[in-house]
Design a protein around this nucleic acid. Structure first.
Lengths: 232, 232
DNA sequence: TTTGTCTTACATCTTTAGATTGATAAAAAC
DNA sequence: GTTTTTATCAATCTAAAGATGTAAGACAAA
């Protein structure tokens, strides 16, 4: 399939000029990619990205002047369908996690074999996300750890389970910042009924006011819109 | 290394009796693992897990009676150092994500080659987390998507930046469910001063009440304890 | 049939929250 | 050295929130 497509265009950003040259040579000689630009400055790199619209950017994220992660984020925000692969000297789980979180389509260590880099570029060019197996393992350790507390929290008694269906509806509207009148309007019931429900919610959740109820809900599985996608 | 250790013990849970037999035979003949039990029931499986303490559980997560994901969660909650590999017929991104989130150490498709399953078990037995490359790609699509909205949100103007240091302190206490009196006590200022601050906060965040202020804060970078770990 | 839960609703009352205006002193910015 | 911002406090007022008790109709379980 790929042989019928035009050669993918690559931009290299790395503050180490030597490494930059090495990677450029590698790509030029051993792959089917065109290097359309190289720079040692993250800021210039962002501008080159806007100008040349490469298919792929190889971004060193261990640069002293500007944070490579931030640069990736800025490029992602452009919404230009440019796929960024993070290059790093460290297999730090936190770094990997953050890079993938902000939208990097790959993460390759500088110490890895050149074939690994080319392979990553092939996968990413084909629309996939690619992480070397060893780094995937690292990533998941971190990922699962970040949910461990939450799992333990939900292992405790969750007072939310005592709520009736209607009370859950009311609580959901509370977690969206509605007041009594607004909730009454949305549920087509009277304001006094809403007050009754809310009071029952307070009793069941053992809280004193709506703010505490909302906080309890958010911290115990009642997903708000932002987090709903990654709820179990 | 592994040849010096005792053979790892495996428990199989799959509601399809045929598939269960097939996997048992496969493992017995072609791997160095001991199958210490098999069952078609998730509930019985959990009890067997408590009893036999296997090193690894292969858990079918597409069972009609009991949700396999829930079963994994219950096993994880036991805290027994049992590593669960999810077996599934579907390469659905949401399923993969949820399985990994609740602590599965691997996710293998039933349609995959038997060697792939053995390899996954080897990796997991060695303490790693293993996802086949194709599924890793799926996982990351989902993972990155779930953070897209957030990234766009933080690309907008963040009204929190307009708050003074004192106002941030007050808002922080608001996000912990404190009322005026409580905040005044903790900051050693009068209640009326707190009211002034809170009113200024409302103005700056363009909200009408404290619940909305708290929600704005939580959704725009004011980390509460649970989410702080996975912030960029 | 009775019992219990859920949902609805109202009245009453107290407390808290929120809006508005005004004021002072210190600190920071110009 | 003046202006602006920040932090502090007060009085007053209205609106909203919360507490408490009561109760009727629906519905399901016992």
């Amino acid at each position: 399939m790929r042989e019928f497509k035009r050669r993918s265009r690559v931009l290299l950003i790395d503050d180490n000029a030597d490494h930059l040259r090495g990677v450029k040579e590698l790509i030029t000689l051993e792959s089917c990619y065109d290097v359309v630009g190289t720079t040692t400055s993250a800021n210039i790199g962002i501008n080159l990205a806007k100008k040349y619209r490469p298919d792929i950017i190889l971004m060193d994220i261990n640069m002293p002047e500007k944070d490579g992660l931030q640069a990736i984020q800025e490029i992602e925000k452009l919404g230009l369908d440019i796929r960024v692969i993070a290059l790093s000297g460290y297999d730090d789980a936190d770094l990997i996690f953050r890079a993938m979180k902000i939208g990097a389509k790959g993460y390759v260590l500088k110490t890895m074999a050149s074939a690994q880099l080319i392979y990553a570029m092939d996968e990413v060019a084909a629309g996939k996300v690619y992480l070397p197996t060893a780094l995937t393992s690292r990533f998941f350790e971190y990922f699962q750890n970040s949910f461990k507390e939450e799992a333990q929290a939900s292992a405790e008694e969750n007072l939310l389970t005592y709520l009736t269906a209607r009370e859950e509806e009311v609580l959901d509207l509370l977690t969206q910042g509605n007041n009594y009148k607004s909730i009454a309007g949305k549920l087509f019931i009277s304001e006094t009924t809403v007050k009754t429900h809310v009071n029952n919610i307070f009793q069941k959740l053992q809280v004193n006011d709506r703010t505490q109820a909302v906080l309890y809900a958010l911290n115990n599985g009642f997903a708000n819109r932002r987090l709903s996608k990654i709820a179990v």
